[in-house]
Design a protein around this nucleic acid. Sequence first.
DNA 1: GCGTGTGAAACAATTCACAGCG
DNA 2: CGCTGTGAATTGTTTCACACGC
Lengths: 209, 209
Amino acid sequence: MALTDVPEIVVRRLPLYLRALTALAESNHLVTSSQELAARLGISSAQIRKDLSYFGEFGKQGMGYEVPYLRDQLRRILQADRHWSMVLVGAGDLGHAIVNYASFKRWDYEIVAIFDNDPAKIGRKLGGLTIRPADELESAVRELGVQIGIIAVPAAQAQAVAERLIRGGVRAILNYAPVSLNLPSDVRVHSIDPVVGLQSMTYYLNPSS
Amino acid sequence: MALTDVPEIVVRRLPLYLRALTALAESNHLVTSSQELAARLGISSAQIRKDLSYFGEFGKQGMGYEVPYLRDQLRRILQADRHWSMVLVGAGDLGHAIVNYASFKRWDYEIVAIFDNDPAKIGRKLGGLTIRPADELESAVRELGVQIGIIAVPAAQAQAVAERLIRGGVRAILNYAPVSLNLPSDVRVHSIDPVVGLQSMTYYLNPSS
DNA sequence: GCGTGTGAAACAATTCACAGCG
DNA sequence: CGCTGTGAATTGTTTCACACGC
């Protein structure tokens, strides 16, 4: 099975499986099944089995899956078993929160450079790094060989920042700016906008209160 | 057209349309088209037209859409044209960042109570509110009549917190804890886990660097 | 017997393509 | 003519259901 034709929607579910398996392993749960994972994740067991089958045969018939083994396989598939360097653009409140976000450290994602275009911030320290001027962006990203960029700038600047990150060699962007980025299809984007999440939920809420 | 059979995936796109229309309106762009929105959002124009057609006929043939009108219609549909109260559980680093997140204010989402189970934090102030003990959760949520809860506690506690929020009357949860919540299907959940986003992107990245 | 892996069937979402109207 | 709104066609995703092996 050619891995190029794995549907993206399947890839987006794998981290959820990995997260559940990691939690199971931490509570010394050595064996699981597609049904148990399904119950935890709110996904059907058939879907979990089909998703995993794109990548190999990880279970034993009649037995289920060995938790540490399947976890390690998913970590390998997702390249979550190694260190990743990232650059952060935007040293405002959001940038501060991102630098201090504990889960990144826990999963071996490391911010190795921070950029801002505010002269008052350039030269200051943040999370052990000196904030660098935004005009060094392309060259610094290229020198560092970083593939992941995090955008935490105002919406109006996000598209331009994304394009400069890409020119520096970035291939994946975690976008916290509340705007849709328009980028080449070979660049991955994951956007986080809590307001978008809230608005799609309030659609279903009661008009009262 | 019964609004109950609007696919959820359509509802999840509406906030993106609203966001784009709000930006267009702010730059005094008075008219737009499904093609222009499509180019901005990276979605096909046919999909935008079909999505909007679930809710009414908002455009003029040969002309396109009036930006302020369509924006207001979407705000009404999503109930984004009114104030929403929310409660926050978890007053750690993440909770602090959430309280100070400017976009909530801009869109009229207000945090009206904050809870934590750490005695060292209870009684302290955060964003003008006094941090309350977690055991007041259900009763306080019920008294306040709040429909939206934000979870910013460690993964191990998130499921229990969610259940307590729901017992207090919450019907929508913005979940920042890195765990899949298992809740009644009439409760809406939107989860934000940057690591999940990163892992689904690193799948596609180059093994080098 | 139990639970995986998987073709086939069912269902859902997207795109096509064009009538219709300003 | 230009662009919306929408059935029909296409494409994509999920579920079904069962052979297979532990």
